[in-house]
Amino acid sequence: MNHGRRILWTRVAFIAGLVGLLEALCRLHVIKPLTMIAPSQMVQELIALAWSGELAEPALQTFIEVGASFLFSVTVGGALGAVVHALPRVRRTLDPLLASWYAVPFFVFYPLLVALLGLNVLPLIAIGVVFATPAMMLSTLAGLDRVPRVMHKVARVHRLSQLQEVRLITLPSAAPHLFTGLKLSFAYSFIGIIAGEFILSGGGLGYGISYAYESFETPKMYALMLFVLLIALVANGVLHVWDRRLARRRGLA
């Protein structure tokens, strides 16, 4: 068995062990059913929820919001990063703002966004965007900073046009950092939006969880939490695999 496989299987075994332990603790009532239901029950509940069609609507809302926020952050954040990279003075001015962006607890602005945009999906998407765009911007800046200076010379020696240089040299050279930007944009869109739904009662999966909690529907609450967890896992898994493929394309994996 090769090294990568061993790591993967150890990871799977570790998670399975944890889940098994949790299952046993719940089944033996060491953890009270009112506190947490067993993982197997969560799965059953989730399947039942999906089957009854109750899951579709909130899930769809959350997907649309996260998708919109992700696309917007990546394009706008990437473009802003490129523009700011070309303007050192603007960059210096924005530097303190960007450096303390993630130190600001943004959740405190949620009520304000609702007041500004109304209680619909827009403030939720806006929250995701506010959270995710600077990450993409910072990653783009980092990526462009790390394009070796000699690469520009290579482009000139081959007499590439500006557009060709961006496409054939700059973008592939900055790709690893841009990819990090994609990952962070997704994660921050997801976190910001679910939290927004939760705090603002704005519909979607986040609101589903808080509603189930407040109406003492513990099983349903855990089913939805499991679903959110699964989305995070699947998305991370996909990005991880893609990342590895990218690294392999540079002979690094």
């Binding site: 200076r149 000699v150 010379k153 020696v157 040299i169 592939p172 050279s173 790709a175 540079r250």
Partner: peptide, 13 residues
């Protein structure tokens, strides 16, 4: 004119 640079200018991708 062809140029070979002092720095490593191979394209890693």
């Amino acid at each position: 004119i062809g140029v070979v640079f002092q720095e490593d200018a191979s394209l890693p991708w």
